[in-house]
């Protein structure tokens, strides 16, 4: 078990190193020259050169890369070209908002997806199953900005329960989290349904029924305990995907998260921020997976003794 975790941790580190190579390369593939963007059109060649030197962009590539990684290890993600601030400061200031949105989104995804999936699985092939699957397909396929605007229109404008946007209270969180919850909940309900259908066919479910327990208990205790395993793995992945920032939702609701930061940075080719956000997203994905690996043995006893 410890060995397994150590191996997964090693893999995670290797993946992150790979990502640093990519983010590093990214900075050279950008069409715009960052130095010129900082210096402005009218700068003299001398100014341009001094800025280039100041940024360390005149050194050979491997040296630049090593410098980049060693700085990363010290928590130095570089300085934003445009905002003249440490990237790490920018990201850290956005992180709480993103994590809050992440938690809210996963809460709604599970709140919507799990009951819908379980219910559909028990009504397999009947009208209610078909309806649930059609609705969750709609949830999955509808663009997030459509869901977002729709919710805003309905619950902030028509019936003004929630604020129109912004950040600060739980009320602000509901609509953006619900938007993500609706589109993600569609995935979860489909996954939950197929996992549950699979499990309900198992011999141990027949044993459970032969004990004379209520069907609810059969499904919610014996079925769910097994069917939840793939869902947990999916939540692990989701954490990472959200870390990249829910760009669309954050801009619809003016949510000051990492996605918004990235979006603004992309528009002005603020490469250090883009690199930093990419790396944070990668860290998020890797951490999410590690978390799932860590939690899984507690839920699936078969993994414990290996």
């Amino acid at each position: 078990m410890l060995q397994f975790l150590a191996r997964r941790f090693g893999q995670a580190v290797a993946i992150l190193l790979g990502v640093t190579v990519i983010t590093f390369a990214l900075s050279f593939l950008m069409p715009a020259d960052p130095v010129r963007m900082i210096a402005g059109r009218s700068a003299t060649p001398e100014t341009v050169e001094s800025i280039r030197r100041e940024l360390g962009l005149d050194q050979p590539l491997p040296a630049q890369y090593l410098r980049y990684v060693s700085r990363l290890l010290q928590g130095d993600f570089g300085r934003s070209y445009m905002q003249k601030t440490e990237v790490s400061t920018l990201i850290l200031s956005r992180l709480p908002a993103t994590l809050l949105l992440l938690a809210g989104a996963i809460f709604f995804e599970l709140l919507i997806g799990m009951p819908a999936g379980i219910f559909a699985a028990t009504r397999r092939g009947r009208a209610s199953d078909n309806w649930i699957m059609a609705i969750s397909f709609a949830g999955v396929s509808m663009p997030q900005f459509v869901i977002g605007l729709l919710l805003l229109y309905l619950f902030a404008y028509m019936i003004p329960i929630f604020p129109l946007g912004g950040y600060g209270s739980l009320m602000h969180l509901v609509l953006p989290a619900l938007t993500l919850g609706i589109s993600g909940g569609g995935w979860y309900s489909r996954m939950m349904r197929s996992a549950m259908i699979d499990v309900l066919r198992k011999d141990y479910i027949r044993t459970a029924r032969a004990k004379g327990m209520r069907e609810q208990r059969v499904i919610l205790v014996h079925g769910l305990r097994n069917a939840i395993l793939p869902i947990i793995a999916m939540v692990g992945l989701d954490i990472g995907i959200f870390m990249a920032g829910a760009v669309v939702v954050e801009s619809v609701y003016g949510w000051p998260g990492i996605g918004q930061l990235a979006w603004q940075a992309i528009q002005v080719v603020d490469i250090p921020i883009i690199m930093g956000v990419t790396l944070v997203a990668a860290i998020g994905i890797v951490t999410g997976n590690l978390l799932a690996d860590l939690v899984m043995p507690f839920l699936d006893p078969r993994l414990q003794l290996e």
Partner: peptide
């Protein structure tokens, strides 16, 4: 339900898969 598992017990052909792994 109050008869199943109480006044009538049942055992199955597949011992390997008839117990819940969790």
């Amino acid at each position: 339900r109050s008869i199943r598992g109480n006044r009538i017990g049942m055992i199955f052909q597949e011992p390997m898969t008839s117990l819940n792994p969790c």
